[in-house]
Amino acid sequence: MARVLVAEDDPDLRGMIEFKLASAGHEVTVVADGDAAMTSARAAPPDLAVLDVMMPGMSGIEVCEALRADPVTAATPIIMLTARAQSADVSRGLAAGADEYLVKPFSPRSLVEHVEKLLAAAAS
């Protein structure tokens, strides 16, 4: 059981992710934009963050960079979600410090798998 922060501006997708991760037994905090994600992460640093790249306000990339810059969250596993599948977008996300990159549409099952894998890696 881990605390997972989910930042996704699309409410349906946000709901789906929240449902799947909660079903997998995680404590999920959902926010709709990057600024809220930063506020939440500062208030209660999560064990893992799932960030959508394209969000109003701070983008997922910027949030990722900010989290990496903060010593508290510097090691927090981060999964990026994006609708942009081109290699340039992927490498930009990874360069910002993301651990994993999922292209929409993605399988909720594989999201959970990635979350479990990263949490296990962080724990060890």
Partner: peptide
């Protein structure tokens, strides 16, 4: 992609 992600995600 975003609506597709919702559709296929919920279907799954």
């Amino acid at each position: 992609r975003t609506p597709l992600a919702s559709i296929s995600g919920y279907l799954e």
